[in-house]
Amino acid sequence: MTKDELITKLKAIIAPYVQDEEAFKKLSEDTDFVKDLKINSANLVDIILDIEDEFDIRLENEDMEKMLDVKSAMAIVNAKLEA
């Protein structure tokens, strides 16, 4: 999967939980789920479960720990897909 394909898939997963649509339009690898998109921490777990379903992977506690921005989410998904 290319970087762009991965970002597109992640964007679709994140979209329903975004509270700041302006920041969402400008989404990049550096976008932070909580600080920029204002996603409620109660919904971070939903994003993690949606990622697991979409890519058919399972995330461990140590993967979840870093799941705070687009860049980390991409790195974790890539690592799992390559494993």
Partner: peptide
């Protein structure tokens, strides 16, 4: 704080693996 109405509407604690993750 958790807004009870919001939690009912936008979170589903009964979805698979939700409880195990948290």
């Amino acid at each position: 704080i958790v807004d009870i109405r919001e939690a009912k509407k936008y979170s589903n604690w009964q979805r698979p693996r939700f409880l195990e993750k948290l």
